[in-house]
Simulated assay, not measured.
Amino acid sequence: MMLMQAGYEPIAIRHDAGSTYAGRLEQWQAYGDPVPLACMVADCVVREQCWIGKIVSDIRRGHPIAGHARGIRE
């Protein structure tokens, strides 16, 4: 929600990253170190923005967008 309020698209934290997310969240909450969690979120933001850029590029080149459904990423 905070990302969307700042003008970013929502991000997806991969299911297999759940324990990593939990560990980084705990680092912030227990030890006051937000950097690992912030880096993880930043990586997700960059990945989502790149994905959106790819979709826009493909549309501009006339490629169909049907293959861009979530989960069909290369």
Rank of each mutant, 00 (worst) to 15 (best):
residue 2 M to A: 09
residue 3 L to N: 02
residue 4 M to Y: 13
residue 4 M to E: 15
residue 5 Q to V: 06
residue 5 Q to R: 13
residue 5 Q to T: 03
residue 6 A to E: 14
residue 8 Y to W: 14
residue 8 Y to M: 12
residue 11 I to Q: 00
residue 12 A to I: 12
residue 12 A to M: 10
residue 14 R to F: 09
residue 14 R to K: 10
residue 15 H to E: 15
residue 15 H to V: 11
residue 15 H to P: 11
residue 17 A to F: 09
residue 19 S to R: 07
residue 19 S to L: 13
residue 19 S to K: 10
residue 20 T to H: 01
residue 20 T to S: 04
residue 21 Y to Q: 10
residue 21 Y to V: 04
residue 22 A to G: 10
residue 22 A to C: 03
residue 23 G to Y: 02
residue 23 G to H: 06
residue 24 R to T: 05
residue 24 R to M: 14
residue 25 L to M: 08
residue 25 L to W: 08
residue 29 Q to V: 11
residue 30 A to D: 11
residue 31 Y to I: 05
residue 32 G to N: 08
residue 32 G to I: 10
residue 33 D to P: 03
residue 33 D to Y: 04
residue 34 P to M: 08
residue 35 V to P: 02
residue 35 V to E: 15
residue 37 L to G: 00
residue 38 A to G: 05
residue 39 C to K: 13
residue 39 C to S: 08
residue 39 C to Y: 05
residue 40 M to I: 02
residue 40 M to K: 00
residue 41 V to P: 01
residue 41 V to L: 14
residue 41 V to E: 01
residue 41 V to G: 00
residue 43 D to H: 09
residue 44 C to N: 06
residue 44 C to Y: 06
residue 45 V to G: 06
residue 46 V to P: 02
residue 46 V to S: 09
residue 46 V to G: 02
residue 47 R to P: 00
residue 47 R to W: 07
residue 49 Q to L: 10
residue 49 Q to E: 12
residue 49 Q to Y: 10
residue 49 Q to G: 07
residue 49 Q to D: 11
residue 51 W to T: 12
residue 51 W to Q: 14
residue 51 W to Y: 15
residue 52 I to W: 14
residue 53 G to R: 13
residue 53 G to F: 00
residue 55 I to G: 00
residue 56 V to T: 12
residue 57 S to Y: 04
residue 58 D to S: 09
residue 59 I to F: 05
residue 59 I to H: 01
residue 61 R to Y: 08
residue 62 G to Q: 01
residue 63 H to E: 07
residue 64 P to M: 05
residue 64 P to K: 05
residue 66 A to L: 06
residue 66 A to P: 01
residue 66 A to E: 07
residue 66 A to D: 12
residue 67 G to I: 01
residue 68 H to D: 01
residue 68 H to A: 00
residue 69 A to C: 07
residue 70 R to M: 13
residue 71 G to N: 02
residue 71 G to D: 02
residue 71 G to R: 12
residue 72 I to H: 06
residue 72 I to Q: 10
residue 72 I to Y: 04
residue 74 E to H: 01
residue 74 E to C: 07
